[in-house]
């Protein structure tokens, strides 16, 4: 970068200050909806009735308690965890194994199989969601956690295999060759030499997949119809549908839905952006 001036002229300083001012305003605008959720969720019951959208005009946890118990957001949160964690683990494990094979282990039919898998990047879930509904019903997996987890993990496999293959392809050959000369078996080269080198990629994929699964709306909406299991996304959606519901608990429900995602992002923002970036640039 050529922009490493040591001393700024007054004019440059003014430009820079105006940039910052503009960026602060835009950042606040971008965050405004999140602030609004937080503010309404933390109001007292009376205040919500009078002034639901005034920012931070009162403070209580009443709405959160209401949402957690009456709104069943506690159980939605549990269902979100029960769906998201196993499906994320499945996607990451299967993608890592297959990504390694697609990148570094030649076998007959490898290319055609790889294309069949990454076809999933081109075909939206949309195209096959209807037949999949009846297929799950026939398999006895409709309305079950297991069925939904299997579907959720499959929706991440096209990107996962694609991403991990790219990651393993970029690793140098030397270590693999050296281990082979030392007489290590192929399985050992994978598990003890190459896999440790892939940890950054696996980390990025895990965070990315977790977010996708946590936010997924259509899969639980379609394949968990009875409501015995209901994650936060569809829980919040159906809570809105019940018109008698107050804005206060709704805001609290929205807060419970977004909080894990926002916290995860703030903690691991580098991995998250990297995941989305590579998803975009390479896909």
């Amino acid at each position: 970068m050529s922009i490493s001036r040591i001393r700024l002229s007054p004019r440059q300083r003014a430009t820079r200050a105006s940039h910052h001012l503009l960026l602060v305003v835009l950042s606040l605008l971008s965050l405004f909806p999140v602030i609004l959720i937080l503010s309404t969720a933390l109001k007292t019951e009376q205040d919500v009735k009078v002034n639901p959208f005034g920012l931070f005009s009162s403070f209580s946890f009443e709405n959160i308690v209401q949402a957690w118990t009456v709104g069943e957001f506690g159980s939605h949160l549990l269902d979100s965890v029960l769906l998201t964690i196993p499906s994320t683990v499945l996607t990451v494990v299967l993608s890592t194994m297959a990504g390694y094979a697609f990148a570094r282990l030649p076998f007959p039919g490898r290319n055609i199989l790889f294309y069949a898998v990454v076809l999933g990047l081109l075909v939206p879930f949309f195209a096959y969601m209807i037949p999949l509904y009846f297929q799950l019903r026939t398999m006895g997996m409709l309305d079950t956690l297991v069925g939904t987890i299997l579907v959720l993990s499959t929706t991440g496999l096209a990107f996962g295999a694609f991403f991990m293959r790219a990651f393993f392809s970029d690793l140098p050959d030397e270590l693999e060759q050296a281990a082979r000369i030392d007489g290590a078996s192929e399985a050992r080269i994978f598990a003890q030499v190459m896999l440790p080198l892939a940890t950054p990629g696996i980390g990025t994929l895990t965070v990315f997949t977790f977010l996708q699964n946590w936010n997924n709306f259509l899969v639980p909406l379609l394949y968990l119809p009875s409501g015995e299991y209901r994650p936060l996304t569809t829980g919040l959606y159906l809570f809105v549908g019940g018109r008698s519901v107050d804005i206060g608990p709704l805001a609290a429900g929205a807060l419970i839905t977004i909080l894990p995602v926002v916290l995860l992002f703030i903690l691991l923002q580098r991995q998250v952006t990297e995941g989305f970036l590579s998803g975009a640039v390479k896909g």
């Binding site: 909806p33 609004l36 936010n215 929205a254």
Partner: peptide, 19 residues
């Protein structure tokens, strides 16, 4: 700034719709 501007993208669509 990057975090502030990127957060809307990672929120679930339902929450965005509600607010």
């Amino acid at each position: 700034y990057r975090v502030a501007l990127f957060i809307p993208y990672i929120l679930p669509a339902v929450a965005a719709g509600v607010v």
